[in-house]
Simulated scan of single mutants.
Amino acid sequence: MSKAAIGTTETLRQSVVVFSKNYLPISRVNIRRAIVLLVTGKAEPLDFLFEVGWKVRSPSVILQVPAQIRLTMTSNERVWKIPPVNRREVLRRDCQTCQYCGSKKNLTLDHVIPRSQGGKHSWDNVVIACQRCNSKKGSRTPVEAGMPLKTKPIAPVHPAIAFAEQFWREQQINLE
């Protein structure tokens, strides 16, 4: 394989960060998708950020593809709703790990403040626990049982917000 072919393949594997019209980083796309967005006028290059980008050559055109682009249109995304509190979603949030001991076997749902004490079936009160820890805790709070939680239970965040937070964390690390 020639050096030019290796460079082309490597370039096409790169990703471009897509910002919303309001400059919120929303996703990463491959270079091909970024070119389509740029050529159709659905996006514009952002060159105020740190990376230069890549040159993509065709037989008749050389395109400069930036590392970041901004959508020029408002997207008609459907409204994202917080998913319902159910076993599958809580398992996903808690990485399929008991929030008391870290076990990954015989997992159940546990109400941090037991329902018998007025606890609700909500994102901030339901965690994953193994059967052993759930039985040991019983109908007591984690403080009463002497079993602290590994992480505080919270509702899932919008995927675009999670991506934006991760993107800015990476940018901060790159600046240091």
Rank of each mutant, 00 (worst) to 15 (best):
T9D: 04
V39P: 00
A5P: 02
T74Y: 05
R92W: 12
K120M: 05
G138D: 13
T11N: 01
N134A: 03
E77K: 09
V85L: 08
W168T: 10
D47F: 04
T9H: 08
F167R: 07
S15E: 14
N106S: 12
E170Y: 03
V126G: 01
S15N: 11
C133V: 05
R28L: 12
L24I: 09
A129S: 13
P25S: 05
R140N: 14
D124S: 14
R169T: 01
E44I: 10
T151P: 01
R70T: 04
C133I: 07
S2T: 15
S27T: 13
R57H: 12
L37V: 00
L71E: 04
L46D: 07
G53K: 01
K105Y: 09
A155T: 08
Q99C: 02
K120G: 06
E165L: 12
G118D: 15
V29K: 05
F48L: 02
L46M: 13
I6K: 14
V157K: 14
D94A: 11
L38Q: 05
W54N: 08
K150T: 08
R33F: 01
S135F: 07
I173T: 07
F19E: 01
T97E: 11
V29R: 00
A43P: 06
R13K: 12
L24H: 07
S103A: 15
I62S: 13
V16D: 01
I82L: 05
V143S: 10
R13W: 06
K105H: 10
T141G: 08
V157D: 08
S20V: 05
R140G: 01
Y23G: 00
A145R: 10
T11Q: 04
M1H: 11
F163E: 07
R32H: 12
